[in-house]
């Protein structure tokens, strides 16, 4: 189901499959999910956005949230979502920063065997800034919980700021947790390798931008028109 969201608040509970085009400048998404649910959020505002997410996934369900921000304005993205016993949370976020993007994300394993997997990607353009703080938390009592996050950031030109803080706060033994971060411009060795196969700098940039910003086709298979829309937006970024 596609929602063009013009209001400030939306409660999401067990809607299985949702694509939200956020059009209001200030939005609060409140999750209360107990069956497998997939939510794709696209920043569709014409200017700035303050997006807030909060809530829980319970009952052994899996909540997948994919956030795509190709918007040219400023964004402030806050999230505080918790996974209960045997429940899992999968987070994918992708940012194209041509202005100022700020994110303060917290994802908590509350109880036993809860699982969180976070994957952040960003491209920060000339003169733009990204400040992303991503905190994975494992609470006391969340035995055998898993909390993994990886972030990657590609800088193009001379951004003002490209700062990602991957944080883990663990208050339990017998858990799995990890964080990884890569940030920087295209490696010269990689660029030479691509050049040797005929891929010049611009084509290499296209490949990287597309890989950083394109959502997995499997996520969008039910939304062919959105897929086209995103493809066009990504192509515009490459102009």
């Amino acid at each position: 189901m596609i929602i063009e969201l013009n209001q400030n608040y939306l409660k999401i509970s067990d809607q299985r499959d949702l694509l939200i085009k956020v059009q209001s400048p200030e939005v609060h998404l409140d999750y209360e999910v107990s069956t497998d649910t997939r939510v794709i959020i696209i920043n569709d505002t014409t200017k700035d956005l303050h997006l807030k997410e909060s809530g829980f996934v319970t009952g052994g369900a899996e909540l997948l949230i994919a956030y795509l921000d190709l918007n040219q304005g400023k964004t402030f993205y806050e999230a505080d979502i918790k996974a209960d016993k045997d429940s899992s949370l999968k987070i994918i976020s992708k940012y194209l920063c041509s202005d100022q993007k700020k994110a303060d994300l917290k994802y908590t394993c509350l109880k036993e065997r809860s699982s969180i997997d976070i994957d952040n990607s960003a491209i920060v353009l000339d003169d733009a800034s990204l400040e992303l703080s991503c905190t994975g938390i494992i609470d006391k009592g969340a035995k055998r919980a898993k909390n993994h996050q990886s972030s990657r950031c590609l800088t193009v030109g001379k951004p003002k700021t490209a700062k990602i803080e991957p944080i883990l706060l663990i208050d339990e033994d017998d858990v799995e947790a990890s964080h990884s971060l890569s940030s920087g411009t295209i490696d010269e060795d990689v660029l030479f390798y691509m050049n040797t196969k005929g891929i010049d700098y611009n084509a290499a940039m296209r490949l990287f931008i597309s890989s950083y910003l394109t959502l997995d086709e499997r996520l969008l298979k039910d939304y062919p028109s959105i897929q086209d829309e995103i493809r066009k937006k990504v192509e515009q970024c490459l102009m």
């Binding site: 060795d189 390798y193 005929g198 010049d200 084509a203 490949l207």
Partner: peptide, 22 residues
Amino acid sequence: MQYPMEIGGVTNSDFLRAAINA
């Protein structure tokens, strides 16, 4: 190459199509 580079995030398919199209 003797030591081929790893390119995370770019699939072999996209890489090769870009190389062929170039």
